[in-house]
Simulated scan of single mutants.
Amino acid sequence: MAYATSEDFGMPELGEVEVVKLLVAGGFGVGKTTLVGTISEITPLRTEERLTDIGYEVDDLTGVEGKSTTTVALDFGRITLSPRVVLYLFGTPGQDRFWFMWRELSVGALGAVVLVDTRRMQDSFAAVDFFESRNIPFIIGVNCFDGADIYDEDEIRAALDIGAHIPIQLCDVRHRESVKLLLVRLVEHLMLQAASEITSHW
């Protein structure tokens, strides 16, 4: 297998393996680490640390009171689609103080899943703004937490203030099939975006 730097992710490897870099983003405790771990064919790379008393003073644990660890840099997983196509998944850290990592992780990314917890919808605004401002295609994955209210697509779209062209997919990131469907939806969205851009240049 060919190797690549972070700048190379998302670009075809020279006649060997095409690496597609995708991001999994969203607020604190929304399920990014779980998603990567659920779908990755390898033991995922995680940079989790235990929450400390100092962290409890700055992190909003409303709705995730039982959370004891947090990602401080990234999560990384891999999915082989074929002998020539490999997906690299990068999960971003969720807390405000680690958002400087997002800029580096986004280099070379073809698209992203923005995970949403409907109990804390406002925590997703920053991720939506980040990808919109950088013209990185993304879809919304609504992680269906136990006991959380279920809203229809129009309500979610209005709450996030996103256009009709951005797909919204309900999911449970604890289940592999659900994550697979979410990633398929993202890849389909990327293909439509690419076709649209080609057409607009004719």
Rank of each mutant, 00 (worst) to 15 (best):
M1L: 06
A2Q: 14
A2P: 13
A2Y: 09
T5A: 09
S6W: 15
S6D: 11
S6E: 15
E7D: 12
D8A: 09
M11N: 12
L14W: 02
G15E: 09
E16D: 12
E16N: 12
E18M: 11
E18I: 08
E18W: 04
K21Y: 12
V24D: 05
G26M: 04
G27E: 08
G29M: 03
T33D: 08
L35E: 00
G37Q: 09
T38L: 09
I42N: 11
P44D: 10
L45M: 04
L51F: 07
L51T: 00
L51C: 02
T52D: 09
I54T: 10
I54R: 14
G55K: 10
G55T: 06
Y56K: 14
D59V: 15
L61H: 12
G63N: 05
T69C: 00
A73L: 10
D75L: 02
F76V: 13
P83L: 10
P83Q: 08
V85M: 11
V86A: 11
Y88A: 06
Q95W: 07
M101L: 12
W102A: 01
R103L: 07
L105E: 01
L105K: 07
G108V: 08
G111I: 12
A112K: 10
A112F: 02
V116S: 01
R119K: 12
R119W: 02
R120W: 01
Q122F: 07
F125D: 11
F125A: 07
D129H: 10
I136F: 00
F138I: 05
F138P: 11
C144M: 11
D146V: 11
A148W: 03
D149C: 10
D149G: 00
D152E: 14
E153V: 13
E153D: 13
E155I: 14
L160W: 08
G163K: 09
A164R: 10
I166K: 04
P167H: 07
I168V: 13
Q169D: 09
L170S: 05
V173I: 05
V173L: 04
H175N: 05
R176Q: 13
E177Y: 02
E177K: 12
E177D: 14
S178Y: 06
L181C: 05
L183F: 14
L183S: 01
V184N: 00
R185E: 14
R185T: 15
R185D: 15
V187Y: 08
V187T: 12
Q193E: 15
H201R: 14
